[in-house]
């Protein structure tokens, strides 16, 4: 089984880290993985996306033309990637920032990544809200493994940051209306 995920948003929204955590969690679960980033020239505020592939077999191209899952943080990213998803795929959209998402090619679920993160005290953990939603929605990686990766990623001397990230992850998991196991497409 191969699962292809495109994650896109503004630079600074934690898009790259979100992809890395999914990739590392899948790696710990003995899957083949690739993580391929693409940036604009700007470090903050430009466009940013990454492509993550998780598979039971060796991965050829790390590029994704048609994804199983899109995780979209803003409207421009939705416009750019809305057609790069399988009809039976899933689109997780940041309900806080994305505008018109009526032209979706696949099932769409709006989740307020940014607003939820803001309520939790830091807009920076919006990516963790999205990660939680992704884990609950797809079941591609176990939440336990994801927690392991987050714990290894957050610097040891910042327990408050770790607490915030985990809270955001759990909040995100709870926001999904129809949690499920990923279908083999």
């Amino acid at each position: 089984m191969t699962n292809k995920i495109i994650i896109a948003g503004y630079g600074g929204q934690g898009v790259m880290l979100l992809g890395k955590i999914i990739a590392e969690a899948a790696m710990l679960e003995k899957k083949f993985v690739t993580w391929l980033p693409a940036y604009g020239a700007e470090v903050r505020g430009g466009t940013a996306n990454c492509m993550v592939i998780v598979s039971d077999e060796e991965i050829g191209s790390p590029l994704i033309t048609e994804a199983d899952t899109l995780i979209i943080f803003n409207e421009p990213s939705f416009v750019r990637f809305k057609n790069q998803v399988k009809a039976k795929g899933i689109i997780l959209v940041n309900g806080s920032l994305a505008g018109d998402t009526s032209q979706a090619k696949a099932a769409i679920e709006k989740i307020p990544f940014t607003d939820t993160a803001f309520k939790l005290g830091s807009i920076k953990v919006a990516n963790m809200v999205a990660l939680g939603a992704f884990v609950a929605k797809t079941g591609l990686v176990r939440d336990k493994t994801v927690l392991e990766v987050i714990e290894a990623t957050v610097p040891k001397d910042k327990p408050e940051l770790l607490r915030q990230n985990i809270a955001a992850l759990k909040e995100g998991m709870g926001l999904v209306k129809q949690p499920g196991k990923i279908e083999v497409l």
Binding site: K20, A23, T34, P37, P62
Partner: peptide, 9 residues
């Protein structure tokens, strides 16, 4: 650039 920035185990 694909190889340089790509992450794999």
């Amino acid at each position: 650039g694909m190889l340089g920035q790509m992450m794999e185990p």
